[in-house]
C-alpha cells in the first residue's frame, strides 16, 4: 500500500432537516483512501452511503469536518475551484446510465473531452476510439444510446468517467441496473482502471458479489463507519 493517502476525510458530520425532524446521516465519519485501491462501501438503504460519496466527491457540503484531497482542503476552496478540481481529477458513475438518447456512444464520450478540456475533434476522436476499444465497444461507437443494451450503456457511462484518466473515480451502485454478467464486466473494468491508472476507486454498492473486487470493504450503519476485512461476510 502506498504510504500517502490521496484522500483524507476527518470527522465528517451531515444532517438533513431541522429541529425535531433532524436526521443525522453522517456521524463523525473519518476515512482515508489510497491510490490504486478499490474501496467498497456497503450498508443498508438510508445508512448514509450516498451522502458520504457526495461529501467526499465535492457534490455536497458537510456540516462539519474536512476532506483533504491531494493536499487541498476540498470544502474551503471556492465553488469554481472545486468545479475545476472535479473536472481535472474526478470521474463519476451513477446508477442510471444518464446518456443523451440521441447521441452515439462515441459522441457521449467526445462531449466530455471537448467541453471539459477543449480537446480538438481529432484528439477527442482518437482518445474516445481507444477508450471504446478498451471497453469492448469499438464496433458500437456509432450506435445511438437509445439503441444500446443496458450493459453497453453502463460501459459507455464507465468510459465517460474514465476517459480523462481521473485520479479519483466515484461509483454509486454501478452494477445496480445490470444483471450480474454485465455487472461483473463493469466492475472488472473499474478495477482494472484503478490498478492501471493508480486511481482511487470508491464504490457504493449492495451486491456482495462486488466484494472480491475490493481491496477494502467499509460498512456504514446509522451514519457511522465500521471497517472489516474484505474477506468477511458483509453486513447488509
Amino acid at each position: 500500500m502506498p504510504d500517502q493517502p490521496a484522500l483524507i476525510a476527518r470527522n465528517l458530520e451531515r444532517s438533513y432537516g431541522e429541529g425535531s425532524s433532524t436526521a443525522r446521516v453522517l456521524r463523525d465519519v473519518s476515512i482515508e483512501l489510497y491510490p490504486g485501491r478499490v474501496v467498497l462501501l456497503m450498508g443498508p438503504s438510508g445508512s448514509g452511503k450516498s451522502t458520504l460519496l457526495a461529501v467526499l466527491s465535492g457534490l455536497l457540503r458537510p456540516d462539519r469536518g474536512e476532506v483533504t484531497i491531494l493536499g487541498r482542503s476540498l470544502w474551503t476552496i471556492r465553488e469554481s475551484a472545486r468545479e475545476r478540481f472535479r473536472l481535472e481529477h474526478f470521474g463519476f458513475i451513477f446508477q442510471g446510465f444518464n446518456l443523451f438518447p440521441s447521441l452515439t456512444a462515441a459522441e457521449q464520450l467526445e462531449m466530455v473531452v471537448r467541453w471539459g478540456e477543449g480537446a480538438s475533434p481529432r484528439e477527442a476522436r482518437r482518445r474516445v476510439g481507444a477508450m471504446l476499444d478498451q471497453l469492448g465497444l469499438g464496433a458500437r461507437g456509432h450506435i445511438r444510446a437509445d439503441q444500446l443494451s443496458g450493459g453497453e450503456k453502463q460501459r459507455v457511462a464507465v468510459g465517460r468517467a474514465l476517459l480523462k484518466n481521473p485520479r479519483f473515480c466515484f461509483a454509486d451502485e454501478p452494477t445496480g441496473s445490470l444483471d450480474w454478467g454485465h455487472g461483473e464486466q463493469v466492475i472488472r473494468l473499474l478495477h482494472a482502471a484503478a490498478r492501471d491508472q493508480g486511481a482511487v476507486l470508491f464504490v457504493v454498492g449492495h451486491d456482495p458479489r462486488l466484494i472480491p473486487y475490493a481491496d477494502r470493504v467499509v460498512h456504514m450503519v446509522d451514519g457511522r463507519l465500521s471497517d472489516e476485512p474484505a474477506s468477511l461476510e458483509p453486513t447488509l
Binding site: L87, F90, F92, N98, W115, G116, A157
Partner: peptide
Amino acid sequence: REYAVLRALGI
C-alpha cells in the same frame, strides 16, 4: 440527469 452527470464531471 444527463446534464447533471456533466456537471458532476466538472463541465
